[in-house]
């Protein structure tokens, strides 16, 4: 871009329509440009150096595999993984939320229970996945349980912290107006905790996709994780890449849904000032 273009942007006079929008938010255009350049280089490199398909498939091969998959068996496996992800997320998040509310009621309870929860959290879930598969079988239920154990902690931790976020004078004011313990919880503590709870939900939904895939890796009869193992075994690299694309679309989609709900529920918070609590 030349200096002359910059002057046009500053006065805001001449650029119109799409072109103007691109100038206002250059990151959109640049992101698309980056994508095109990277994919182009990738395609070019694979063709130029004649890289074997089983090492690195070309973008066009991945695209073809994606198209083929979507019109044959992807939808079925997608549905299985999606159901496991959502089921485990709902189960784990609800469990974390409920336990967080219970534990958050008193410091004594928190100090008694928390060490066990932390011990459970430090346990790598991948390591206990085989046990869960033995207990719950090769079907969807074992994946739902594995996912739930992963989605559980972000909700628990953020709920406990969030329930403590209500400012002291807010609580004192409600008590001065004769509010009961339950009323203080309902009118101040819970709403104050919502921004934290949504941070937990956002972390949990993304981890849930991982949970479902890990579960399928250990042993499954269907699902995108199961399909990745199969295609890997058949050295169908383009197919594996195509599934990875489907998985990330699923993850991003779920993340966006959580964010959209958050903006509606926690409407009084500026999303840019969201508090970020580690998972």
């Amino acid at each position: 871009m030349t200096d002359h273009d910059d002057e046009l942007l500053d006065t805001g006079a001449r650029p119109k329509g799409v072109w103007q929008a691109c100038l206002r938010q250059p990151e959109i255009g640049l992101a698309i440009l980056l994508f095109v350049v990277v994919v182009g280089c990738w395609e070019g490199a694979v063709r130029l150096f004649d890289i074997p398909k089983i090492v690195l498939p070309s973008p066009s091969a991945v695209g073809a595999a994606l198209w083929l998959g979507l019109s044959t068996d992807f939808p079925h496996h997608f549905a299985v993984t999606f159901f496991e992800t959502l089921g485990g997320f709902v189960l784990g998040a609800a469990g974390g939320l409920i336990l967080g509310v219970l534990v958050g009621q008193s410091r004594l309870m928190e100090r008694t229970v928390y060490p066990y929860i932390v011990a459970f959290q430090t346990l790598p879930k991948v390591a206990i996945a085989p046990i869960i598969v033995i207990w719950f079988g090769y079907g969807m239920s074992s994946k739902i349980v594995i996912t739930a154990t992963i989605a559980f902690f972000p909700l628990l931790a953020n709920t406990i912290v969030g329930l403590r976020a209500a400012p002291q004078d807010q609580i004192e004011l409600l008590v001065a107006f004769t509010a009961s313990r339950w009323q203080v919880f309902r009118l101040a503590r819970l709403p104050q905790a919502l921004p934290y709870i949504f941070v937990g939900l956002d972390v949990a939904i993304v981890l849930s996709v991982i949970g479902a895939i890990v579960g399928e890796f250990v042993g499954a009869q269907a699902g995108l994780g199961y399909l990745i193992l199969q295609k890997n075994f058949n050295m169908d690299m383009a197919g594996v890449f195509a599934i990875l694309i489907v998985l990330s679309v699923m993850g991003i989609g779920l993340h966006l849904v959580v964010n959209a709900i958050q903006r509606r529920v926690v409407f009084w918070m500026d999303s840019s000032s969201d508090k970020v609590m580690g998972a």
Partner: peptide
């Protein structure tokens, strides 16, 4: 003993619930 329904309080900060 304890808060009364017959009392109204105002603190230094308005302490309004933003939601």
């Amino acid at each position: 003993e304890g808060p009364s329904r017959e009392v109204g309080v105002v603190f230094q900060a308005p302490v309004l619930l933003p939601w």
